[in-house]
Design a protein around this nucleic acid. Structure first.
Lengths: 326, 326
DNA sequence: TAAAATTTGTAAACCGTTTTAAAAAAATGT
DNA sequence: ACATTTTTTTAAAACGGTTTACAAATTTTA
């Protein structure tokens, strides 16, 4: 009871050698049926569970993938995580999840931990920064999803991502179609996706024949109070009648501010869809990402790289679905 | 490049023995400063990272805790996970997270995986069912949080949980105080917390001098359409002017149904607080759990059990905070 | 029935690290 | 300078599995 049984204990109890137990439990064909059954029952009875550390060190693979997400409180990433877990599970792989809270230090820690635990491959939604992933990862395969590494750093990895430019362009165009004449944007300053979404915003204004107004275009997020202040700035001072919000977490602060301001005619749009947007008193135009497909693609490609390390890196762009409410 | 460096490579490159490298990198005092520095630079230069599987098998601990949650899409559990990760990190422990999607099969798989990976202890929010945790876990310490194992199964483990009875009683009493005269309940049928919340509901009615009406009291959840149907049943057919909702996920379905029904005078309350409840057109009375404190307690106790396996199991009841809006 | 082919079991090597015990080197005391 | 103590380093033995090479047992073939 106080010590975990090892393969040795099972072998002794079953009256066979350790190697036989190993073969029996891994369903090797080179063992008599009667023997296998005997070993199996003894193992069950002892509650024997092979030590995967010992196995991993010998066979040099763990059938485990690492997944690094920047914000476990963000619904988008939890949904993505779930889909990736599912897809990996279907292929017999388990997933180690670590959250970095958008911190580079935590990301480095998570990456190190996973490599030390000898994951077979890692899935990264980057926290940004100038990390040299190739140097850290060494020969371990990896793939990026949603949050890419900075563009100035060369990476030999696959990238799976939604077409942010196109989707944002659609959303903003929709706001205009719904009657907005002056659309502002609140965007997160740093991330890879933010840059693309800004481009989509600009594209939509251009397509709509609307001159860019630098006063309403640039908006960097630093903290929550900042967002509320910017909301006021854009909607009251700048008199915007349309607003595009760059992501989930910013949207929450915007909505909070909107409960104070009385602006029934504002046309609101944002990236990432949430279930509860349906319950709000005001319709929001959103981009719903094909999360299941993203997850499946990520896992398929990573496993393909495990099977063939020579596989050339590639970028996958999927289309988001635009949700208009009323 | 194509092979990961081992301690042997470092030893050879530094011109010392493997044992010395091991000591140097683990900051053992039994190594000369000059030697340590030399080893360190060689290790850095080779991008050497110790194989934690190999270490784990030798030292018989991994400094890793496993955490099993029943629903990664449920905000409550992601918040709890984050707090537990933080608390564990402060004590030098890492956390392996696995999601069971409320499935007993996945829970069993997750538990097995963690034990095979030799986690030092496991934190469980149970998916219910009649699992004999003590048998599965063997000598590995564990602790339960929020979702307890079924009451008829004896477990030698700590339990950390909010006082569901008291909190629910408060919420329902508040609904009554706000003018409700006939309060219904929609509860999840199976879980441990559901039973307690039902008791709290009954208590509040009793305290308010209101007779129990079996027609509105019992409500089991099976699937989503079921919830919407029950909402209609209680609010229209049974003419309830107050409603208590047993958890997060049920609340979403109730709110969806409420967008169809025109019931401005309904007094609504539910367990678990969400940020976005603030943005809804209707105020909701909720119980906000002391998640940070729950997480810290869980980790503290689990680590205490690691240090002293003899420590007697204990139950910790924390109070939830009742949030009334307007 | 002997020889060959096949199946099954055994012992030993191996994976990468830590640790124990012993040896080597350096420091101290006389 | 030599004996003794102290500090560093090393070689070898774990840790718990898997796998390989090989021997033994069994079955098939001649």
């Amino acid at each position: 009871m106080s010590e975990k049984p090892t393969i040795k204990d099972v072998a002794k109890a079953a009256g066979v050698s350790e190697a036989t137990v190993s073969r029996a439990l891994s369903h090797s064909p080179r063992v008599k049926r009667a023997t296998r059954e005997k070993v199996q029952t003894v193992a069950d009875q002892l509650d024997y569970r092979p030590n995967s550390l010992a196995r991993g060190i010998r066979v040099k693979q763990t059938h485990t993938l690492g997944m690094i997400i920047p914000d476990i409180l963000n619904d988008y990433f939890t949904q993505l995580t779930r889909e990736i877990e599912d897809a990996a599970g279907r292929s017999g792989y388990d997933v180690l999840i670590m959250n970095t809270d958008e911190s580079l230090a935590k990301e480095a820690h998570a990456l190190n931990l996973m490599l030390e635990k000898q994951v077979d491959g890692v899935i990264i939604a980057s926290a940004g920064g100038q990390t040299d992933y190739a140097k850290i990862l060494g020969p371990t395969p990896a793939i990026f999803v949603d949050r890419m590494p900075p563009a100035n750093i060369k990476t030999p990895y696959d990238r799976v991502i939604v077409d942010n430019v196109k989707a944002t362009c659609h959303i903003v165009s929709q706001l205009l179609a719904q009657g907005a004449t002056r659309v502002g944007i609140i965007n997160s300053a740093v991330s890879f996706t933010a840059t693309e979404r800004l481009a989509g915003y600009q594209q939509a204004l251009h397509d709509g024949g609307i001159a860019l107004d630098s006063a309403i275009e640039v908006a960097a997020r630093t903290d929550n109070s900042n967002v509320q202040q910017m909301t006021r700035q854009l909607l009251i001072n700048q008199k915007c009648d349309g607003l595009f919000v760059g992501d989930n977490t910013i949207m929450e602060e915007v909505l909070r501010k909107l409960t104070e301001l009385d602006l029934p005619n504002l046309q609101l749009g944002g990236f990432d869809d949430q279930l509860w947007f349906d319950f709000l008193p005001r319709p929001i135009v959103t981009a719903r990402q094909p999360i299941k497909q993203l997850g499946q693609t990520v896992v398929d490609r990573l496993l393909a790289h495990l099977a063939d390390p020579q596989l050339a890196p590639q970028e996958f762009r999927l289309d988001a679905q635009i949700i208009t409410r009323q």
